[in-house]
Computed example of a mutant assay.
Amino acid sequence: MSERRYIRLKESTPNLDGMRNRPDGYLEATDGTIGDGPWRVRTDEHGFIMTGNETAEGASPIVFLGDSFVEATFTPEDVRFVSQVERRLASHGLKVRCLNAGYSGATTLQLFNVFLNKIVPLVGRGGTVVFFLPQSDLPIYFRPHSYWYPTDRYAPLLPPVEPEASDLPRGSGALTSILGLAVWAAQEFGIDLVLVTSPHRNAQWATDSYYHRMISEDQHTSLVQRRADIRGAVQRFVADSGVKFIDADAEFLDKSSAFYDELHLNDEGHDIFSPWFADQLRLLLDR
């Protein structure tokens, strides 16, 4: 009997309330600035990670889509930047409810699936989606089959299916095609879409003890090149599409101490990122 195939929806399990500890060996893969944990992780009935804040009745939803940078479950609930942004926006008189739809390992294609099949029917016309470009794209960006790379982590279909098409786009062609679909869908369904570049630890291999310990100089060079290609593709896409845009990556290029590893903010990093990002987002929401 053939195994049944399905499209995986990358979301947290609904109605969770538990404590999360660092996996074995995780601390060794950081620069040591990650907290000790454990950390409380709660989700609502739709699998959104809860902020721990009280929100005003009738508050408008703002969905934060992204990978583990947005998920941020190795951070206290009230420190996570989505939680802090919600409080800061409220302090400026905005009645909003920030919904954390971050999920570790999610790619741009997988986030588009979440956007179209989960977020659209939940927020409806007039809702806001803040789409963080995931760092999880990096390992498959230039690989054969790109966003359709046939592994359990990356494939849009499970069990993974080896693509047969020989002309699947990869690199910037694949990324901008998927982003174009997201912008089109947002327009069709009346959703306010904000595209955001996810910041990362930006440092020289020779002078950054974390990078020097974790990867080789050649690997670091390749990583920098992939990031530069993605950055250029996104900048061209934004210029052509006119989508609302926050370049958080550019803002944090000189703040490597805000990260406990290559991709994730430490607690201090969340405190630095949150007010800046809330103010950037507020300016766009007022438009």
Rank of each mutant, 00 (worst) to 15 (best):
E251G: 07
S256C: 09
A155D: 01
S209L: 13
F189L: 06
V161A: 12
R153N: 09
P169A: 07
S241T: 11
G190C: 03
A258S: 14
E162P: 03
I191G: 05
G232V: 07
S256M: 09
Q219T: 10
G232Y: 09
L181G: 04
Y210D: 02
D240I: 08
V183Q: 07
D254K: 09
R226S: 05
L181C: 13
A258N: 14
Q204V: 11
P159W: 10
N266Y: 09
R170C: 06
H220K: 11
Y210A: 05
L195H: 01
G232H: 07
M214P: 01
V243K: 03
G190E: 05
K244C: 08
F252V: 08
H212F: 13
P160V: 10
G173A: 15
E217C: 09
F252L: 11
G232T: 05
V194P: 02
L253E: 12
L265E: 01
P159I: 08
F237N: 04
D247T: 04
K244M: 14
F189P: 00
D247S: 05
H220S: 12
K244L: 13
P160A: 08
Q225W: 08
L157I: 15
W205P: 01
E262D: 15
L168H: 00
E251R: 08
F237G: 04
R231Y: 11
D261A: 09
A203N: 06
M214C: 12
F245I: 01
A233F: 00
P199M: 11
A186V: 07
V234P: 00
L175E: 03
L181T: 08
D192E: 12
I215N: 03
L157Q: 14
E268G: 14
E262V: 14
T221N: 09
I230W: 02
T221Y: 06
A186C: 10
V243M: 01
Q187S: 15
V234H: 02
S257W: 13
V234T: 07
R170P: 00
R236H: 12
Y211R: 10
Q219L: 14
D249R: 05
E164C: 08
V238N: 01
L168E: 05
E188H: 12
F259E: 02
Q187L: 12
Y154F: 13
V196A: 01
F252P: 00
F189Y: 15
E262Q: 15
Y211H: 11
Y154T: 04
A239M: 10
A185R: 14
V196Q: 01
E251A: 09
L181Q: 11
I246R: 05
M214G: 05
H264Y: 08
L181R: 10
A174M: 03
P199I: 10
E268A: 15
P199G: 11
A182L: 09
A250H: 10
G242E: 05
